[in-house]
C-alpha cells in the first residue's frame, strides 16, 4: 500500500487517543472498582443493579422493623414474666391466708400487700416503650388500663412484615392475658376481691381466688409463649434478611464491580500499550528523505 505522510500522523494521533481512552477506562475501573456506572456500560446488569439495590434497601427496612418489634416484644416478655411473679405471689398469699387459723388482724395486714401487687400489675401492664403503650393493641397512645384495672385498649393485634407481604404479630392481647376475655379470669377483679375478702376476714372469699389466680397464671403463660414465638419469628426474619442481604450483595457486586486484579492488570496493560504507541509513533516520524538529501 502506498503510504502518505499524513497517514503516519493520522495513525499516530488515532492510536495515541485510543490508547489514552483505554488507559482512562482502565484507571477509572481500577480506581472506583466499578464496572458499570451508566446504563450503557452493560444494559442488563444496569437493570439488575436497580433490582438488587431495591432488594437490599427492602431487606434493611425489614431488618430494622423486625429489630424494633423485637425490642418491644422483649419488653413485653420481661413485663409478662414479672406479672407472672406478681400473680404467683398473690396465689401464695391467698394460699397462706386461706388457712382459718390466721386472725382477722393478720389477714388485714396482708391487704396492703395485695393492693401493692395490684398496683405493680397495673404499672407492669401500663408500661410504655419509647412513648408507646405496648399492651393496648392498636390503641397505643394511652395507658391500656385505668386505675381500677378496666381495659381501655382494643382487641387488635399489631402486625408488621417479616418478609414482603408476610406479616407477624408484634403484640399480644393484654385483654385476653390479664382480663380473661374469651373465657378466663380477670386478674384485677380477682386481686380486688382478694383484697376485700382479706379485709373482711372472709376465708371462703380468699379461697375463691385460687382458681382465678391459677387461671390468670395460665393466661399469662400463654401470652408469654406467644411473645416468644413472635420473637423467634422476628429473629428468623432478621437472620434471613442478613443472609439474603449477603447473597444479594454478592450478586450486586458481580453485576457492577470490576475484578480488582483484572482491573489493575488492565491498567498496567493499557499503560504499556500507550507507551508502545508513543514510542512507535515517535520512531516513525524520524525517517525522511528530506534529511538525507
Amino acid at each position: 500500500m502506498r503510504v502518505s505522510d499524513k497517514m503516519f500522523y493520522d495513525l499516530a494521533t488515532k492510536n495515541a487517543l485510543d490508547a489514552r481512552d483505554r488507559v482512562l477506562t482502565a484507571s477509572q475501573e481500577a480506581a472506583t472498582g466499578k464496572r458499570v456506572t451508566s446504563p450503557g456500560d452493560d444494559p442488563s446488569a444496569a437493570g439488575l443493579i436497580v433490582r438488587d439495590r431495591t432488594q437490599l434497601i427492602r431487606l434493611d427496612a425489614i431488618n430494622q422493623g423486625a429489630g424494633r418489634a423485637n425490642d418491644e416484644l422483649s419488653m413485653a416478655d420481661s413485663n409478662l414474666q414479672q406479672l407472672s411473679n406478681v400473680v404467683t405471689r398473690a396465689r401464695e398469699l391467698a394460699e397462706q391466708l386461706s388457712n382459718d387459723s390466721y386472725s382477722a388482724a393478720e389477714r388485714g395486714n396482708a391487704v396492703a400487700e395485695v393492693n401493692t401487687l395490684f398496683n405493680q400489675a397495673l404499672s407492669l401492664m401500663n408500661v410504655d416503650f419509647n412513648g408507646r403503650y405496648i399492651f393496648g393493641g392498636t390503641k397505643d397512645n394511652q395507658p391500656p388500663f385505668d386505675a381500677s384495672g378496666n381495659y381501655q385498649g382494643d382487641t387488635n393485634v399489631r402486625q408488621i412484615e417479616v418478609a414482603p407481604g408476610v406479616l407477624e404479630d408484634s403484640s399480644v392481647r393484654a385483654d385476653v392475658a390479664v382480663k380473661g376475655v374469651g373465657g378466663g379470669a380477670d386478674l384485677f377483679a380477682t386481686l380486688n376481691s382478694l383484697s376485700t375478702a382479706l379485709g373482711a376476714n372472709d376465708g371462703s372469699g380468699i379461697r375463691a381466688a385460687f382458681a382465678s389466680l391459677d387461671s390468670v397464671n395460665q393466661q399469662v403463660g400463654n401470652a408469654l409463649a406467644k411473645v416468644g414465638a413472635s420473637m423467634d419469628a422476628f429473629d428468623a426474619a432478621q437472620s434471613i434478611a442478613a443472609s439474603t442481604k449477603l447473597t444479594t450483595t454478592k450478586t450486586l457486586s458481580g453485576e457492577q464491580d470490576a475484578d480488582v486484579f483484572e482491573a489493575t492488570s488492565n491498567l498496567a496493560l493499557a499503560n504499556h500499550a500507550l507507551d508502545a504507541t508513543l514510542t512507535a509513533s515517535a520512531a516513525s516520524f524520524q525517517m525522511s528523505l528530506v534529511d538525507k538529501l
Partner: peptide, 18 residues
Amino acid sequence: ALGTFYTSLRGVAQNPSD
C-alpha cells in the same frame, strides 16, 4: 429514593403513633 420512601413507610407501619 424509592427505597428510602418504602423504608420510611415500613418505619411508620412498625409504629404509626410515632
